Amino acid sequence: MLVLEPVIDAADAAGFTLWPTTAPAGRSLIRVSAGMSVLDVGTVMAVLHSRCSDAAAAHPDDVVAALRAIVETDCLIASGGLLARETQTGVVIPPSCCCGLESWREWTAVPDGGQPWLGHSPAPWVEHLDNAVRIWPDGGLGEDLPPIERAITAPLDVVSAQLHTAHQDLLGFLDAATRWARDLAPGLAVNLVAKLDGSFAIAGQ
């Protein structure tokens, strides 16, 4: 069965010490959901901090200033997106280079024939079939297709159900981030979560 999971690449959190994080090794994808650990939430926030303007660098040891820099950034971006996984075969197709969680809603057009951007090098893509889709791990930019055993095929109703589940995961991420921020900088929690919500198009249908 197809599973779609919202993930963020934790690589940019390497070396971060301002608050507790996990220790990413290379490209480490963190699933964002209500069940995230405190360390995972901290890692995601460290990734977002790494993309902020020089305002964050002005106070390198100030947690509140670092979080305020996240809040004041025009629009947050984070490498990641929706990871596709087939539970029976074990095939996993992660979002690729230059794909961001901020564009996850492109997937919502798939049941109606849409084609989301899933990154390049490799270049995953979605092939539309009769009442189903096939998610390929490469070939989206004209490369040779990989063996079909590395692709994931799923009915459209399963895709729609998994998009709903992924949306619930993202809403749960806002809850986890709220708890995390209230412990670290309660005065910024509401604004920080609002920034996450707006930047990653989480609330709403």
Rank of each mutant, 00 (worst) to 15 (best):
D112M: 07
Q115I: 06
Q115C: 06
P116F: 07
L118A: 08
L118I: 12
S121T: 14
S121Q: 15
S121L: 13
A123K: 13
A123M: 07
W125F: 15
W125K: 08
E127N: 08
V133G: 04
V133A: 04
R134K: 13
R134D: 03
I135E: 09
I135A: 05
W136C: 06
W136E: 02
D138W: 05
G140S: 14
L141I: 03
L141V: 02
G142N: 00
G142P: 00
E143G: 14
L145Y: 03
P146R: 08
P147S: 08
P147N: 04
P147D: 11
I148W: 01
I148K: 06
E149S: 14
E149C: 02
R150D: 11
R150L: 14
R150K: 12
A151N: 01
I152G: 03
I152Q: 05
T153F: 04
A154M: 01
L156N: 04
L156I: 14
D157I: 08
V159C: 10
V159L: 06
S160W: 07
A161S: 10
A161C: 03
Q162T: 00
Q162L: 04
L163N: 11
L163S: 03
L163Y: 01
H164N: 09
T165V: 11
H167I: 00
Q168Y: 01
D169K: 06
L170R: 06
L170G: 09
L171I: 15
